[in-house]
Design a protein around this nucleic acid. Structure first.
Length: 576
RNA sequence: CGGAGCGUAGCGCAGUCUGGUAGCGCGUUUGGUUCGGGACCAAAAGGCCGAGGGUUCAAAUCCCUCCGCUCCGACCA
């Protein structure tokens, strides 16, 4: 490919609306261009990489025994009503009507449609197990699209679905995808870690997310070096080592109400009283499927709403509005606590660390007042204790007892063992060898293809630009032709291009009438894995210069023209 | 949904407070000098100043409404 014929626009300045490096680089290197918030046009360079990621995904899916299909983006509402997700997806799903006023969704995922298709074709255990996949554009009306392709309204996703005869059989399908995912990300040059994850709204038995570690990641992940435990913070568990007690005899400590004017947050009250935040019990009123519930956690901790939801067996938990808080406790937010709330029937749950807590400080259920010397067992009616807080750095691993560290990650893949949530709803059954009808067991598996592309950049760039792995680079080799108007020099470049392309290597020849510095800057910005400089000066010195993007100038090699193709292949080979 | 900021040439921005001929840098085009890490000189093209309404002799600038974008927050008491 000649650069002068390619639709490439590079920018010297960072785009004003990009925050993170990978987003800035995608725009500056001319991979994509924003159309509107969360919507992008993929330009030729970006499209080439997107296609290469897709090719890797296809190869690994096929190798794992999955079969490619493609389903409509425009999906009738009836399918979504069957599973109940027409309602539960809420405003996150794009909806529209056709001219006959029939409702449709723009597919945010495809469990319903695939289940409907499979059940219409599969009727015997002889046809199972079965895994199908598609690579298709997905639509989600995100609350706040951001960071370019990391969270956009329209994105390319590979979604796979497995169907099995039993929960045990489904484990094999799950593991096949799990292992395929490891290969996909490794081939994209990514270090992706599988971590235990919550199943969220999609439902199911258990799941793993694949994360690429990056400071710009939107998820927190707890890692344990001791045993290798890794889990999303939504899910991560900890071992409680110490309970919140004053160390004094609770009998000698009587509750004492103290005025704390104007102090609402734990931080403010803690400062006001000169006592550390950990001596407090933080009490929050949640609306749990519409019923108020008080949740108590150590004062320096945050509630994990996902854990809370599971603990209470609830469908939806959200912080209660101010009016509900006042009615339930008798005080406004900032002064509520578990001791004698206005509503004596108010259910109260607490984090396991608070079991037996003595000498602590709680809100008094009276505006601008707190109570100290509280013994939770003696003074409050805690209904139940459980693990309700978000794990933080240094917390003790529940499995092996070693301290955990928290890192940030970009979720590039997610595998779920779904069970029968959708196959029950759609009555997707097969006949077993006893002629009995049984419900199929499902798994679902997603890879954010467009997000993966950006994650590669986030993980692999430097101050000069992108550093593409050879497997997904838009072009593997850039020949910087320094004297395009000199016929003999140009011939060397184009002959080399032809020789490399004959061996299946992607090459772009920078034949622009630009000064060398401009070409070098652009080659570094776009990040071609191998750069070859062909110029009159180099040829006079004995050949062409070969340099890998990831090496510095000192590793540049001058090789004779006759050996150039071999040297380039060798340089590429080292990049895998 | 709440708060803040921003919409001026393809990109990055100034000009708005204090109304008076629409500017700068990069990029683009032409000519010339250069030529190994984003050169220089000269000339040129390119704007409904986000949209609509109002005030005024006169509006990018003041007022109102709407739209879009970005960031923060979405109740952690």
């Amino acid at each position: 490919m000649k650069w002068t014929k390619a639709l490439i626009q590079t920018l010297r300045d960072d785009p004003a609306d990009a925050e993170i490096d990978s987003h800035k680089l995608m725009v500056r290197a001319g991979l994509m261009k924003k159309v509107a918030g969360g919507l992008y046009t993929y330009l030729p360079l970006g499209m080439r990489t997107l296609n290469k990621v897709q090719k890797i995904v296809r190869e690994e899916m096929d190798r794992a025994g999955a079969q490619e299909i493609v389903m409509p983006i425009l999906q009738p509402a009836e399918l979504w009503k069957t599973s109940g997700r027409w309602e539960s997806m809420g405003p996150g799903m794009f909806r529209l009507k056709d001219r006959a006023q029939h409702d449709y969704a723009l597919s945010p995922t495809a469990e319903e449609m695939v289940t409907d298709v499979v059940k219409s074709i599969v009727s015997s255990y002889r046809q199972l197990p079965l895994t199908v996949y598609q690579i298709q554009w997905k639509f989600r009306d995100e609350i706040r699209p951001r960071f370019g392709l990391m969270r956009s309204k329209e994105f390319l996703m590979k979604d796979a679905y497995s169907f099995d005869t039993s929960l045990e059989a489904a484990d094999a399908s799950y593991m096949a995808m799990f292992n395929a995912y490891k290969k996909v990300f490794a081939r994209c040059g990514l270090k992706a870690y599988p971590v235990e994850a919550d199943t969220g709204d999609i439902g199911g038995k258990f799941s793993h997310e694949f994360h690429v570690l990056a400071d710009a990641g939107e998820d927190g992940i707890a890692f344990c070096d001791g045993c290798g435990y890794a889990a999303n913070l939504e899910k991560a568990e900890r071992k409680v080592c110490a309970s919140l007690t004053s160390g004094k005899d609770s009998a000698s400590l009587l509750m004492e109400v103290i005025p704390t004017p104007g102090a609402k947050t734990i931080e403010q009250v803690s400062k006001f009283m000169g006592v550390p935040g950990s001596a407090f019990v933080k009490s929050l009123v949640y609306s749990v499927d519409g019923t108020p519930v008080m949740v108590c956690v150590p004062g320096d901790r945050d509630v994990n709403e996902v854990k809370l939801k599971h603990f209470l067996g609830a469908k939806k938990v959200e912080l209660a509005d101010y009016e509900t808080v006042l009615r339930a406790t008798g005080a406004n937010a900032g002064s509520v606590g578990p001791v004698n709330p206005a509503d004596a029937t108010l259910k109260i749950v607490a984090d396991q660390e608070l079991k037996g807590a003595k000498g602590c400080i709680v809100g008094a259920n009276k505006d601008d007042h707190h109570i100290k010397n509280v013994d939770l067992d003696r003074d409050a009616k805690i209904g139940d204790y459980g693990d309700l807080v978000i794990v933080r750095d240094g917390d003790i691993c529940a499995k092996c007892g070693k301290p955990m560290v928290i890192k940030r990650g970009i979720e590039v893949g997610h595998v779920f063992k779904l069970g029968t949530k959708y196959t029950d709803a759609f009555k997707a059954v097969y006949k077993n060898d006893q002629l009995a009808e049984q419900v199929m067991v499902m798994g679902c598996y997603g890879i954010g293809v467009s997000r993966t592309m950006q994650a590669v950049i986030e993980q692999s760039h430097d101050k000069d630009g992108i550093v593409w792995p050879a497997s997904v680079a838009p072009y593997q080799v850039c020949i910087s032709l320094l004297d395009p108007d000199k016929e003999d020099v140009a011939k060397v470049a184009f002959d080399l291009e032809a020789a490399l392309e004959a061996e299946g290597i992607d090459v772009i020849v920078d034949d622009r009438a630009e000064r060398p510095g401009v070409k070098f800057k652009d080659a570094d910005l776009i990040g071609f894995p191998v750069r070859v400089v062909v110029g009159g000066k180099g040829l006079a010195n004995g050949g062409v210069e070969v340099k890998r993007r990831c090496d510095d100038k000192s590793k540049m090699k001058l090789v004779p023209v006759a050996e150039a193709a071999a040297a380039i292949k060798e340089a590429l080979g080292g990049l895998a």
